[in-house]
Design a protein around this nucleic acid. Structure first.
Lengths: 336, 336
DNA sequence: AATATATGGTAAAACGTTTCGCTTTTATAA
DNA sequence: TTATAAAAGCGAAACGTTTTACCATATATT
């Protein structure tokens, strides 16, 4: 029922090959171009993806491989990726990988056999490393998004986590804070490691002793933020400021702060890595580091498309997208 | 390089047709079955999706069409859908639709021309209705997820919003509350409308006057929850309990409550439609209605697969998944 | 004027399946 | 046995593109 390239050929009196050339942007004469365009319009022709894929061996589809343990963040980024990929006439297939695969071989094969042109991997768990290794060996182009994976040399697009954390910490130090808490998630995540690095770098520069850097870690969840913050506030020598290394951690802690009747920033100063639309609506608004998810999505798309196009010139490439520091009112100036 | 059905035919000495039959579960002899299995294993054969799609006109792919204005909820459900779809050897393509399409025709065509076997639509904005209409006309099987769309008769999978809200409201009434606030999002969303209906039904039964039902609406966002709750609390006759019709609204309001130094449930009782992992970690834990997202995902998959299979027997079907009422400690008993 | 070089066009052969119409084999009944 | 029905297998033709190898015409180079 739907018309094919043959119908167009018949209708225009041209050959299949010419129509195909037109469709693929190869040079044909001005006149024929117009004739074909008209015919396509008239017959409502739309190329058959399956046939294209079969013949050209390009599915025009990339896979986003993300952890089952979902997070608000991914949905956001997926949407941006999908949006930018449209410019290349590519589609997005999503695939969640389990933290603890029941049948590794099966999962691996079912991912590899879908014949994607490329894969964007969002690493989250160390247990999935064998999967990533398998992808690397398959020679399908892939890019890590957000996290890098130690042991696998590959393209990665991420925020400038270290610098951004450094900047934020320095901000605290400049405001006179000399005993600072950090609430962090699992350190498998390279992103978090970098943020801690940035924090330590700033502390080093200001000669803050190890004892005055109170780092507490746990699951990367709201509830953990709540609990760890509570614990930190009950220390006999509590910090004057706390740096949260993730959005959910911050949110949990803010809840706990009000529960504990701690006023921000009078009683405790707070900075969040990762912003939230609600942070600027708080009293006081929370100072935060906002990752540029849109930009991360775009750069990832550009990088993977470059690899799919066969350009391996700068491999492996590491793109760090600047996160922006949003000074609001959750940090007290101790010097005044 | 990868082996094909022809290689298997050559290796086993059987014909293409027989191999194909085996692959598609059609009856072949016991012995040949074993021979083929061995050969497939040996040659590492994996079917070429593009060829299958071309010939059979089935892409084994469904599209999840979701609003660009992302939400935590979708990512969650997408993951479940993807998981269940694997049982059918189907993949998930995600596509975000814009609230305000720049070029409607282009967006419509680019969605329709990807030759999906089915589409799961998550409606969110009234402006996208023309798009949904176009999908309906295209005859591609589709199912609405979460929301129904007035004016389009179609399959829908959703929570039992009305009943769940009714149940929650009745709970408040039984605890002696006689003046109740409701904070709601845009009423284009059928889901929210149903929740309000459930609320009103319970109020009717208890003879609550219109004046004692304080319904405030706005954007379905955390910030709005915060603002509206603040506004409601400043009423000269404030309600004794507030029912939030969405997760983000609740979260915003809880923030505001602690800002206003209102203790839950002593000063104000609270119930949330939609649960959050953090709700049970609060002091006090928040009573909530938890939607069964996993179940919603599964039922949606089953329904769309049924339609793809050509079974239109019970069309249109409306599946309501029971949400569960989680009594915690955020509602005060006024009778004691 | 003769030769080389683009340029736009063509017919036909892939690509790897499924499906169609037939033939052969095997099992069942007479 | 033979006749008949059912089951399993076969070759070849699709499916709708892209690609290959070649041909014609027009343009540029000696």
């Amino acid at each position: 029922m739907p018309s094919t390239i043959k119908d167009i050929a018949k209708d225009t009196g041209l050959s299949l090959a010419t129509i195909s050339k037109f469709l693929n942007g190869k040079p044909i004469s001005k006149e024929n171009k117009i004739i074909i365009e008209k015919s396509i319009e008239k017959l409502g022709y739309v190329p058959n993806k399956a046939a294209q894929a079969l013949r050209s061996k390009k599915t025009k589809t990339i896979c986003i491989l993300l952890p089952k343990a979902g997070d608000y963040f991914w949905g956001q980024v997926c949407t941006y990726i999908e949006e930018y990929l449209q410019d290349y006439h590519y589609s997005v297939m999503v695939r969640a990988y389990s933290d603890q695969p029941v049948d590794f071989v099966k999962e691996r094969d079912s991912i590899l056999n879908t014949s994607m042109d490329g894969i964007i991997i969002i690493p989250y768990s160390a247990k999935a490393i064998p999967l990533f290794n398998a992808i690397e060996e398959s020679n399908i182009p892939f890019v890590f998004l957000d996290q890098e994976v130690y042991g696998i040399e590959a393209d990665v697009v991420t925020s400038n986590n270290c610098e951004a954390a450094y900047r934020a910490t320095k901000y605290l130090l400049e405001k006179g804070h000399r005993r600072i808490g950090v609430i962090v998630g699992e350190l498998f995540l390279s992103t978090l490691q970098k943020r801690v690095d940035g924090f330590n770098k700033a502390c080093d520069e200001y000669g803050i002793s190890e004892a005055d850097r109170i780092v507490m870690g746990g699951e990367f969840k709201m509830e953990m933020g709540l609990k760890l913050f509570g614990k930190m506030m009950r220390l006999r020598e509590r910090p004057t400021a706390v740096f949260f290394l993730g959005h959910d951690l911050t949110l949990g802690a803010i809840m706990e702060a009000s529960e504990l009747r701690l006023k921000i920033p009078e009683d405790i100063s707070v900075i969040s890595f990762d912003d939230d639309e609600i942070f600027h609506a708080f009293f006081p608004p929370i100072t935060a580091i906002a990752q540029n998810y849109r930009r991360i999505g775009r750069e990832t798309v550009e990088l993977i498309m470059k690899r799919i196009g066969g350009d391996r010139e700068t491999y492996p490439e590491r793109k760090e997208i600047d996160a922006v520091f949003l000074e609001r009112e959750s940090v007290k100036n101790l010097d005044t």
